[in-house]
């Protein structure tokens, strides 16, 4: 199932995150062990529309559009552009928060894991 939503640049990043997570069972287990949380992203695009994506890195290891079945541990409100900057490594989670570019509800500790979660850039191979 695709997690693509038209009109969002973040959309393709979520798609990539989904591939990264579900592509490799062993890697998925490792990520879940490290992060162990459900992230809900409320992304606002340039037209002012809002879209929710949920990343479950606690049990299922899934990425989906809309809210998940379980309660998220952290809800992050941000713009489409900020999300792209975070995922491409131009901006880190703390800077974005200090600049007021993202608003957080829930367990704030998890925001410190955000950079690792959004690291879409694949690992180099031997």
């Amino acid at each position: 199932m695709s997690v693509k939503v038209d009109g969002y640049k973040s959309s393709s990043i979520f798609e990539q995150l989904k591939v990264n997570i579900s592509d490799n069972e062993a890697k998925k287990k490792e990520t879940i062990k490290k992060v162990n949380a459900i992230f809900e992203f409320n992304v606002k695009n340039n037209e002012g529309k809002e879209q929710i994506w949920t990343m479950d890195l606690k049990k299922g290891g899934t990425v989906q559009t809309g809210k998940g079945s379980a309660k998220p541990d952290i809800i992050i409100n941000l713009t489409d552009d900020t999300f792209v900057e975070l995922a491409s490594g131009k901006l880190n989670g703390q800077k974005a928060f200090m600049a007021g570019k993202l608003k957080i509800k829930g367990n704030m500790m998890l925001a410190t894991k955000l950079d690792g979660v959004l690291a879409t850039i694949p690992k180099a191979k031997l």
Binding site: S12, V19, T120
Partner: peptide, 20 residues
Amino acid sequence: SNIWDTLKMCCGFLDRPDLE
């Protein structure tokens, strides 16, 4: 497919939905 996926992500970073 992993190379295509990475390429697509790069096009996203370049802000080129047409290439995506």
